[in-house]
Amino acid sequence: MGKLKLFFTLLICFFFTSCIPTKDLIYLQKNDSKSDTQPVESVNQKPYRVQVNDILSITIKAMDSKYVEIFNYSNISSQQGLSEQTAYFNGYTVDDHGDIRMPVLGLINVLGKTTEEIRVIVEEKLLKEYFTKEAGVFVSVKLSGFRYVVNGEIGNAGTKILYQDKVNILEAIANSGDITITGDRKDVIVMRRFPYGTETFHIDLTNSNAVNSPVYNLHPNDYIYVKPLKQKTWGTGKTGIESLSTLITLLSLATTTFLLLRN
């Protein structure tokens, strides 16, 4: 009887340690069960500052379009729809010195500046050297797609590009096929480049406080890594049925081995 109790105790422990609990799979869980509502907190997201190897899309318009054709040396992106290839070949890539090279305007340093600051620089340069206010010059500066990399326990790993100005980590993960059942949602790693180097951040996506993390709202060129849970390393199964199947297989193997050695 004592051995039977020990067997069932070990069996229960096996189930609890090998199965992945539901709470590890749900995003943004509330910590305070006493309150169903939480006050909305404003998120002070700092504007992104351009870095080396970023690609900028700069469009210049005027009342008479023929006067700005030389600046807009390619209209492929507006005619055929923006793609990664057209952005690469027709956008303005920030070189190792932080400069972009534009027709007529020449080199313009944009390193560490926001897209709005770059817009002002280009517009002021045009009005000062080539146009008057009556020309109605209009400048638009955007990043050529929001690029990020996701790897690890994810449905569709690789380099992704979203054509929008802001992307949070949940949007990025959803766009990549979601985290697999064996992915660790409690400790997602985000590596971010800065002018002084690269920093590594950790974010718990099962906690509702994740929205206050400095990496909840991504920056272009962020690298996201989802670690595997220990259950994947053990190979015991992700669900109760899989764990039970593994246990039955082990017991069958142990029984067969015992009977063969006994005979």
Rank of each mutant, 00 (worst) to 15 (best):
S83A: 04
F201A: 09
T115W: 03
F7C: 03
F258M: 03
S33T: 08
T114H: 12
T17Q: 07
R147D: 07
I189T: 14
K125A: 10
V68Y: 03
P103H: 05
V149Q: 05
V150Y: 01
F15D: 02
V137P: 02
K227S: 10
K160H: 08
E124I: 00
L205W: 10
V104S: 02
D54Y: 02
I108D: 07
A210Q: 01
S140G: 13
L170M: 12
D222K: 03
Y27R: 01
P39R: 10
F16R: 00
T180Y: 00
F14N: 04
D54Q: 04
I241M: 05
G237D: 15
G91D: 08
Q85T: 13
E171C: 03
Y216D: 03
P21Y: 04
A172W: 02
N109R: 04
L218V: 04
R49C: 07
T200R: 15
K166R: 12
S245G: 15
V68F: 03
E134T: 14
S78V: 14
E199S: 11
S83K: 07
M191W: 02
G237P: 08
G155A: 05
I241H: 08
Q231Y: 06
G183K: 00
L260T: 13
F15N: 05
K125W: 01
T255L: 15
K142I: 11
K166P: 00
D96F: 10
V122G: 01
N209R: 14
G112K: 06
A87D: 14
D165H: 04
N217E: 06
L205H: 13
W234H: 02
I169P: 00
N175C: 00
T114K: 01
L4N: 09
V40S: 15
S33F: 09
L143F: 13
V40Q: 10
F201W: 02
T236Y: 14
N207W: 10
D24F: 03
T257L: 14
G2K: 07
T206C: 13
K3A: 13
F194Q: 09
S77P: 02
V52Y: 05
K23R: 10
R119P: 09
T255P: 06
S83I: 02
Q29H: 05
V211Q: 09
V120R: 11
N75D: 11
Y130K: 11
N168H: 10
V167C: 02
E69N: 15
S245M: 13
Q80M: 15
K232H: 03
T257K: 00
V104Y: 04
S18T: 15
I179V: 05
I179H: 00
I248K: 08
Q231E: 06
G106E: 12
S57L: 14
N221H: 13
Y223E: 14
K166F: 09
S78L: 10
I154M: 10
I181T: 08
T9F: 11
V43Q: 13
K133S: 10
Q29G: 07
A172H: 06
Y67H: 13
T198L: 06
L244P: 12
I189V: 13
T159M: 12
V94M: 10
G197L: 07
L111N: 07
F201K: 03
E242W: 14
